[in-house]
């Protein structure tokens, strides 16, 4: 007789994914409706569809749509990359930026802002972020060595992140103008506001490539639950898996972060929230975390628009303010699994 719970289990998982997808879609649409100026969104859609160049159509297509799209894709990227990193390193404290991608991107982007290339050439900022992300990831991997243990990789990541942050501080310190300082600091805060569709199109190829590399890694992450040696005897090539995951995370997080700036805690918290709902299976967590990350970032970005403050709070500030205490709560709650 077949264990009845196993097919129930499959149904339960499909229902969870469907629910997350519906919530994501609702938040995406809601995100189009919320802003500093209330506009009749339906009328704006009609105008935009009918090629009428009205103000409300412009607000929708040039302000709100790119903002919602960037939140969707960046949130999904942070969520799925966080889940993957936690799976491959088997460490619940791993974040997408752990092996250098986020701080490398921040350093690359800061360099373009510092030198002023970013203002003269619009593609320079995202390109600097991407290159920084890939270089930092390669540096971590080279430092740790081919057959590195998980702890060595994490330590190499921490070291490279510290170096990148130190160099960013140096750039701020030496910045030629207050303008450059302001640009670097504002970028580091992380924001999805004031982006155009062009920014979205710049970000899309790298993130999609990263997502594509991550698909199909689920079973390998499941096998790693039993440790690296046993996973090897289940047919997992750990070396190849790590390369694939790190390159994917560097591409996806590098592309997303170079447009949005540093947005913390989405990649760290999302997998924790969803893990109990997928029976703690690392493979099943991937798609769920992509949707969960999109949901959290869309929520946060809607949240900052509803703040009554005179200056709009940056979304990266909000995710850290909410994310850090929430993460603490998750750690306290997860103590019951420790034996």
């Amino acid at each position: 007789m077949i264990h009845p719970s196993q097919s129930d289990d499959q149904n339960h998982h499909s229902r969870l994914l469907a629910l997350l997808a519906v919530v994501t879609a609702c938040l995406f649409i809601l995100s189009l409706f919320v802003g500093s100026n209330p506009i009749p969104v339906l009328a704006a859609m009609m105008d935009a569809a009918g090629d009428t160049q009205s103000i409300i159509a412009l607000i929708l297509t040039e302000v709100r749509l790119p903002r919602a799209l960037i939140a969707l894709v960046a949130g999904a990227t942070l969520g799925v990359c966080g889940a993957t990193m936690q799976g491959v390193l088997r460490n619940p404290l791993a974040s997408p930026g752990l092996v250098g991608s986020a701080s490398g991107a921040a350093l690359g982007a800061s360099l373009t802002l510092y030198s002023g290339i970013a203002t003269s050439f619009w593609l320079a900022l995202p390109a600097g972020g991407m290159v920084g992300s890939l270089l930092a990831t390669l540096l971590v991997y080279t430092l740790a060595g081919r057959a590195a243990g998980t702890a060595t990789l994490i330590l190499a990541g921490v070291a490279v992140n510290s170096i990148a942050l130190a160099l960013i501080s140096l750039l701020i310190n030496l910045a030629p103008s207050p303008y450059a300082v302001r640009e670097i600091v504002l970028w580091m805060l992380g924001s999805i506001a004031n982006h155009s569709m062009a920014d979205f199109w710049i970000m899309l190829p790298g993130t999609l490539l990263g997502w594509a590399l991550l698909t199909g890694t689920g079973h390998s992450l499941d096998a790693l639950t039993l440790g690296e040696e046993t996973a090897h005897t289940l047919g997992v090539n750990l070396d190849r898996l790590r390369w694939r995951v790190f390159i994917a995370v560097a591409l996806a997080v590098g592309s997303a972060v170079s447009i949005t700036g540093a947005i913390g805690f989405i990649g760290l918290v999302t997998p924790h929230l969803l893990r109990p709902l997928v029976g703690f299976q690392p493979g099943r967590l991937l798609l769920a975390s992509a949707l969960g990350g999109a949901i959290l970032l869309l929520c946060a970005d809607i949240g900052v628009r509803l703040f009554p403050a005179g200056t709009e709070i940056k979304v990266g500030v909000l995710t850290s303010l909410v994310g850090a205490p929430f993460f603490l709560f998750l750690i306290v709650r997860s103590r019951r699994w420790q034996t």
């Binding site: 719970s5 088997r90 639950t225 039993l226 893990r275 029976g279 299976q281």
Partner: peptide, 12 residues
């Protein structure tokens, strides 16, 4: 040997 996440017996 051990398991790194609190997964159910059937899933292991």
């Amino acid at each position: 040997g051990t398991a790194h996440w609190p997964i159910s017996v059937a899933r292991i």
